[in-house]
């Protein structure tokens, strides 16, 4: 958590990142940027999915609909915050010549998406019966 707060400070202090180590090959930085953008798109897709659940499943009970929508929106928020955090960590690791950081997040996110998908199937089936 303290590490995360330290990284948040780095988001807004580009000069501080540049002081560390030496500039890597621009292609590595661009690849890191594309990974960041892919995660940002994942976040946008999760948020769009939250809106879509709210809009296109009107027959669901209010609690389920809002719960699912909020879960997807929250996943989107986490995903985008983590995207920028991971990008900063990778950028710094490359400048220092360290190993790239490993992360539990992709596994967690895929588990959450799987759970939401199963919940969606159950809810749609039950919702149609009721």
């Amino acid at each position: 958590m303290i590490e995360f707060v330290r990284n948040v400070r780095l988001w807004f202090a580009p000069a501080e990142v540049r002081q560390d180590g030496e500039t890597p090959d621009y292609r590595f930085s661009l690849a890191n940027e594309r990974t960041f953008l892919a995660w940002l798109r994942t976040a946008l897709a999760l948020i769009g999915g939250g809106f879509a659940v709210d809009q296109f499943l009107p027959d669901l009970r209010w609690g389920w609909r809002v719960g699912l929508a909020l879960a997807l929106l929250a996943a989107g928020v986490l995903c985008s915050l983590r995207a920028v955090n991971h990008w900063v960590r990778c950028e710094r690791a490359m400048r220092r010549g360290e190993d790239l950081p490993v992360s539990r997040f992709p596994a967690l996110l895929s588990l959450v998406v799987a759970v939401v998908a199963v919940a969606m199937v159950v809810v749609v089936l039950v919702g149609w019966e009721g």
Binding site: L10, W11, T23, A43, L81, A83, V84, W87
Partner: peptide, 15 residues
């Protein structure tokens, strides 16, 4: 390289 400030701004727009 992309500026961290802009990366944070893009992520904050999403949030």
């Amino acid at each position: 390289a992309f500026a961290p400030r802009h990366a944070a701004a893009a992520a904050l727009c999403t949030v």
